[in-house]
Design a protein around this nucleic acid. Sequence first.
RNA 1: GCCUCUGUGGUGGAAUGGUAGACGCGGCGGAUUCAAAAUCCGCUUCCGCAAGGAGUGCCGGUUCGAGUCCGGCCAGAGGCACCA
Length: 854
Amino acid sequence: MATRYDPQAAEPRWRDAWAETDLFRTKTPAEAGDAPKAYVLEMFPYPSGRLHMGHVRNYAMGDVVARHRRAKGYNVLHPMGWDAFGLPAENAAMERGIDPGKWTYANIDAMRAQFRKLGLSLDWSREFATCDPDYYGAQQALFLKFLEKGLVYRKASKVNWDPVDNTVLANEQVIDGRGWRSGAVVEQRELTQWFFRITAYADDLLTEVQKLERWPEKVRTMQANWIGKSEGLQMTFHFAGPAPAGFEAGIDVFTTRPDTLFGASFVALSPDHPLVVQMAEKSEELKAFRAKCAQIGTSEEAIEKAEKLGLDTGLTVAHPFIEGATLPVWVANFVLMGYGTGAIFGCPAHDQRDIEFARKFGLSVTPVVLPPDTDPAEFRVDDKAYTGPGRIFNSGFLDGLAIDEAKRVAIARIEAAGQGKGAINYRLRDWGFSRQRYWGCPIPIIYCDDCGAVPAPMDSLPVRLPENVSFEKPGNPLEHHPTWKNVDCPKCGKAARRETDTLDTFVDSSWYYARFASIRDPAERAYWLPVDQYIGGVEHAVLHLLYSRAFARAMRDVGELDLPAGEPFAGLFTQGMVTHETYKSADGKWLEPDAVEKRDGAWVETATGAPVEAGAIEKMSKSKKNTVDPDGIVATYGADVARWFMLSDSPPERDVEWTQSGVEGAGRFAQRVWSLADSLSDAPYPAPGEDAASLDLRRVSHRAAKAIDKAIEDFRFNSAIASIYEWVNALKKAEQSDGLLGARAEAISMLARCLTPFMPHLAESVWERIGGKGLVSAAAWPEAEAALITDDTITLAVQVNGKRRGEISVAKDLGNDAVEAAAKALPEVEAFIAGKDVKKTIVVPGRIVNIVVA
RNA sequence: GCCUCUGUGGUGGAAUGGUAGACGCGGCGGAUUCAAAAUCCGCUUCCGCAAGGAGUGCCGGUUCGAGUCCGGCCAGAGGCACCA
């Protein structure tokens, strides 16, 4: 009597069995012996309190890799923890009066329970949350070591201020002029902040990212662009007339186009340039101009319009190469204080911004780069700057040189004159990581009126967050706490104050991977790192992944970490999102998938029967109400089915659309697999037969095992799953033939092992049903027998003039001449070559025959 | 504007330069059933009765052979963006 597989009964039973044997606890290096190590890590979650489908997909992928590696004999580290600091906890405190810590730990408990139901092969003994005092205390120690090494410093600067979240944001956290979390338009404020000197590693971060072969090309380019290296010249323009006080030396500019110096027609300063700030004190006109520039702000719209504003300062500077020539000095809104020196020279003929500026304000335009095959007399620049290749002209000693050569010569001339130097500039800025929030890692600094900023003593760590804070007042609760900030100066003992800023939560996630590796034994850090396979969303391509790479270098420089090339993540995979169709009622309200159904081919609201418009397929989000709750899916279909469907439908790097029918298909498949095992008699089974049918089935099995193995290695989980489907279909068919029991039993034993990474619970049930030894989660990957994955006879396609006309079956090692003859003898081929002149025949052994006729 | 990626049936997607459309979803047909559900089996790129022809966003090239390589376009997605 056929039985059905019941995931609700089976899944908890197997999870208990894994827990009892502590199956996924990593071995120590000594226990592991010769086994290679594999550190498989998925980006750890923020404990929002609820799992979503994106989590299921992310962690299902990681689990496939971890379980596969384990089966292949690796000592696997596959940990889980919580990125637990952050604003949502404070928002909950404000809205509902709950303590952020209690709220967070309750969420962690809820999510851990959900995670456990997924059957992930995690080593829970290494679990921690970033809000654990142990963790953030260690982080404070790191901060102090960085400070000592000069990698952390404090300075006053203009910062991005989020008026809704009441905190500073890093440049990386400002998206289109808005806060990445709040969406509020970001303001500029002058504040004293702690900075991480990420620019110290700019060059290394750029060089090494190019070498990360197991990272997606996309992420590598994104990081390279973000770092933004420019090589050029930094030089000084001397004033032609009397220099303003304090600027006797002249004006420094940075340029990547020293070859176009002869085409310079003006120098432009940023409205925030110190010289402009100084002059504005005595000039109402300049003051007004600065205000006007500041107004435009950084909003998307403002930059889109990009109207060029300018004001002539009346100052002039001397041209470095042309005796007696002078250039006017302007203030221009398009010159940014934060990049280079905050001043440029403008060469309108060969820079689009400069030409727009020059045309608007009537400045001269001198072309100095002549495009190839162009008559100098014919060459004009109107409103479009010429930025292509060519030869230098109108340029004295640079005439006739190619652009690159001219750059070198110009730089050499400026250097010889002592007026400047070849220089490299980066777009990357230091990371301001102070945040004016409560729920974060306290910065271990004490301010003393006499001693200044004093590091908290190492033995006073962790500097703990106070409990019983009030969220009544806006602003930083630590600032408002009655006693917490009052401490004595560690140096002089006088009354002093704690730093009330906390660290950006991106600091917490910049080194957690190292904590997992060393939480049991500090000596294991070197054994486990780097992470062999890191998996997460592409939205972290710049922020988290860049910070982590920089942190790994900083940790190396303070003796905390020793990594080849400084890289923490040897392999990176960025998975796509989970999407779902959206539904809208006639009055424009979003409807949940559960509230609608299809009747007679049209979508209607289940409750009312009112028509529903099925809309775009978008990322699951609460606002569009197109989310599907993993708990419900797990309760209905089981964790295996949810995992399977997440991986089956799309390549892992692409988005996958969640569909009801797809999940049902996955559920059907699970039953089908069960039926294969269920239809076998009880073990023991005979050895596979030697007959042709048995051999055929064995070939299918051994080839499938190999194909699945390879596809998992290559992160082609959807292809691995397709191979499993084919295999199962073949096994289903084999049920109808007699005498295949041995081959079928062998196949199902192999299938159980190949299925384990994807559907671990079902695989255990199948394994148990066929009398497998121990747990299949602990079993080795089935090795394909070489003799069974090669064929004696092969099928070759036969083409005439590149078009397929038939196929032949021949012995594998048949000679080319014989193959050719067999191909030509095919009736369907003969029809196409009869009476024609066969010019040549290409025989690709094992592949194809192509007969070329006139 | 610059950079990166992606374009294949009704649909998600397979194809080391070698039989395009594996596998899933959907659809159609059949078996089983009193009937249904479940399950099982088959068919399913387009045109054509067929022989055959066409076909991987568009145009061209390399090759015996191109979805795949090269050049030029078009469209969509993502990233960066007044970065000198």
